[in-house]
Design a protein around this nucleic acid. Structure first.
Length: 274
DNA sequence: CTTCACGCCTGTCAGC
DNA sequence: TGCTGACAGGCGTGAA
């Protein structure tokens, strides 16, 4: 569900509200979401600490706690973090409640319960494989045109699978990959290594532009996604291809095609993307 | 090494 | 109305 723009929006909408707050108590309603260390240790390591900083890396959210511990949350498909003012009713799919010193709550909500939570010292974050191996993010200084050229060079797989792989580019997911390829005019099944220099430039620009717009629109709400205050995003109104199967391409009017690429539902314009 | 199918979960929707 | 199967924004694992 949430990709980089959504997770970044959650971070922004939550930061002001939780920074400096102390976690007084936790209700872990669904213990199996805690992946490290044990549920008991997790509770001990978080309770009584204040939240000093809220960071994001790719699709991970990192809560820096007052004693150097870091709580790492990944929302996977349907995870949400909501700031819940004192007395407000809890979402029915609330799985973990962080009770703050103000009486307000931070809720971890997750319909499909695929999300993950870890807590560990900063120095041990390498326990989380997906964090350790993550490639540079769009809009970051490391995500250069040369870098993109380098990871495409000689690659036999299709471009869609490559862009979905967090080891190459961190933060892209199924929606934004389709949107990036549409903007760059590249067919999702093109062999990555066969993409021309000219197209790689377009793709590099497209990735940065799509992610930037996604963030500026507060993310894409198709069904489940909400920001830290429970509000929907707006980027769903600006999508070029995702979710628009059989609707006319905004550029040429040809019907958008939906197929399966890299095992995922994939949308593209058969005329504009070659 | 890469690529693919699958499992993890619940909810929704199309088709019958 | 009710049932079944496909599918959904992610990612780790194991097999090929």
């Amino acid at each position: 569900m949430p990709e980089m723009p959504e997770v970044e929006t959650v971070r922004r909408t939550l930061s002001d509200k939780v920074l400096g707050r102390i976690v007084r108590h936790m209700d872990i309603l669904l213990p199996r979401l805690i992946k490290w260390p044990s549920v008991h240790e997790f509770q001990e390591n978080v309770t009584g600490k204040s939240i000093c900083q809220l960071r994001r890396r790719g699709k991970y959210l990192l809560f820096d706690l007052s004693d150097g511990m870091v709580m790492v949350v990944h929302l996977r498909m349907t995870g949400r973090l909501h700031y819940n003012p004192v007395g407000a009713v809890r979402h029915p799919h609330t799985r973990i409640v962080f009770k703050l010193d103000t009486g307000d709550e931070l809720l971890y909500i997750d319909t499909r319960t695929l999300g993950t939570l870890h807590v560990m010292p900063e120095s041990e974050l390498n326990r989380i494989h997906g964090l350790t191996t993550m490639g540079p993010e769009p809009l970051s200084a490391d995500f250069t045109l040369d870098y993109l050229r380098g990871i495409l060079d000689g690659r036999q797989g299709n471009i869609k699978a490559l862009l979905l792989n967090q080891q190459y580019v961190g933060g892209l997911g199924n929606i934004y990959v389709d949107e990036c390829l549409a903007l760059a005019g590249i067919h999702p099944e093109r062999r990555a290594g066969a993409i021309t220099m000219d197209e790689i430039e377009k793709l590099h620009t497209a990735i940065n532009q799509v992610i930037d717009e996604g963030i500026r629109h507060g993310g894409t709400t198709l069904r489940d996604y909400r920001d830290g205050e429970g509000a929907s995003g707006n980027h769903q109104h600006h999508l070029a291809v995702y979710g628009r199967a059989s609707k006319p391409c905004r550029n040429c009017g040809t019907a958008i095609v939906k197929s399966i690429v890299a095992g995922r539902g994939t949308h593209f314009c058969p005329r504009c993307q070659t």
